[in-house]
Write a protein that binds this DNA or RNA. Structure first.
Lengths: 223, 223
DNA sequence: ATTCTGATTGAACGAGCGTTCAATCAAGGT
DNA sequence: ACCTTGATTGAACGCTCGTTCAATCAGAAT
């Protein structure tokens, strides 16, 4: 029935979903390189190897393409997080460790993606969009981390822990480490940043964490 | 000699330095409101109550005005920091506390100013400019904090402190708290953020700090 | 008063860029 | 073969700014 694509010829048409993916990927790279203030539709099109008209055909406007780019980035992070949340085989400390690992995973904490996050954070014109798209996720994740801290406190018999305050600190430290990685990528590597996170956890939950990760010998099972 | 300015009439000319100040202030506000991607010379001029021509007269270009705006913000922070560094009456812990206080001082950690910092961080097109202008200061301050941590470690008899790692953590936490204050200003107030900083210090140097600030009863002497 | 200097204005200009759309093409259905 | 549908192209269009500059003005000096 369906003809196999002619082997050597590059297909000149593709389903909408693939073109959208290509354009979002190109937009991601261009935002990381030129910033939201400098991005041009012609640059994105050239990067994707497609014509400018396709942007408006598949996204109706440049602004919409940017919005979808942000949404795509958020979905990726959310999916990773949901997978952790729903994993019944993980105990409290393991979930917390998995969340932290997720934030500094090589597929997430790439220079390009971090730059795009901060581009949307940093530009007041797009910040409303960010809050609209990521705000719910931020608060959900916040609540989850707080619940985990609280469980660890009661289960582990830790006193004097303020779960809410600690959650703020954990998230802020993660954000700040991301910023450092972006500004001085040669000076702070994701691996090192991850260690700073676990050192913080180790000061609060010394019987569960070390600077390396989980205190109990256990390899990461999560991608 | 010099005529006193006519009392009720608003002066129609002013020295270059004052106009520059006015325009930088207006630019700061407009960047915070519209972002670097949305800023227009006409908006800045209107905000300052002056005409567009003056921007090019006093700054030669929009880009240059933005660069000077960033420089002005940096100078302010630097001045505060230098004053602390040179204050002979402060001991090690006091200096560290003063640096932290400086980062969350009401004149520094305003929503507007934080937004401008992140605007320059976040836009790849201006990030080179940021590094050029603030990079030296960043490394100087980093070195100073590390030296203070190291002193506190030896003077205070604290073991197992990695001054370099701790410095990274301190700075990253501060940056991350700034980000949280910007994204969710109603949820995280500077006062609260400051407390998170001192709680971190208290976990590392418990005989010198509490979550409130310096462990030894002592009011801030630094503005 | 007159002149000189530098500040100030804002309309006009022109480059840059997002968007449109008529024409073309690929591929599947009949 | 022919038709239909949807993808694709990129030149052309028009709007949005950043910049310029001739004209005006304020204030000081002579």
């Amino acid at each position: 029935m369906t003809m196999p694509t002619p082997t050597t010829t590059r297909r000149r048409t593709a389903p909408s979903s693939e073109r959208r993916r290509q354009l979002i990927e190109a937009a991601t790279e261009v935002i990381a390189e030129t910033g939201l203030s400098g991005i041009k539709t012609s640059d994105v099109a050239r990067r994707a190897g497609l014509s400018v008209g396709l942007i408006n055909h598949h996204f109706s406007s440049k602004d919409n393409l940017l919005a979808e780019t942000l949404r795509h980035l958020g979905d990726e992070l959310r999916a990773r997080w949901v997978r952790i949340q729903q994993d019944e085989t993980l105990d409290t400390a393991e979930k917390l460790a998995a969340i932290v690992d997720g934030m500094f995973h090589p597929n997430v904490a790439t220079p390009t993606k971090i730059a795009v996050w901060f581009a949307f954070f940093g530009d007041a014109g797009y910040r409303a969009l960010y809050r609209e798209m990521a705000g719910d996720f931020d608060t959900e994740r916040s609540a989850a981390i707080e619940a985990l801290c609280h469980s660890l406190k009661t289960e582990g018999g830790y006193d004097g822990i303020d779960s809410e305050a600690l959650t703020t600190t954990i998230e802020a430290l993660a954000d700040g480490l991301w910023l450092s990685m972006m500004l001085y990528p040669d000076w702070l590597l994701p691996q090192e940043a991850r260690r700073r996170m676990f050192e913080l956890l180790a000061t609060q939950f010394p019987r569960h964490f070390t600077g390396e990760g989980l205190g109990v010998a256990r390899t990461d099972r999560l991608a």
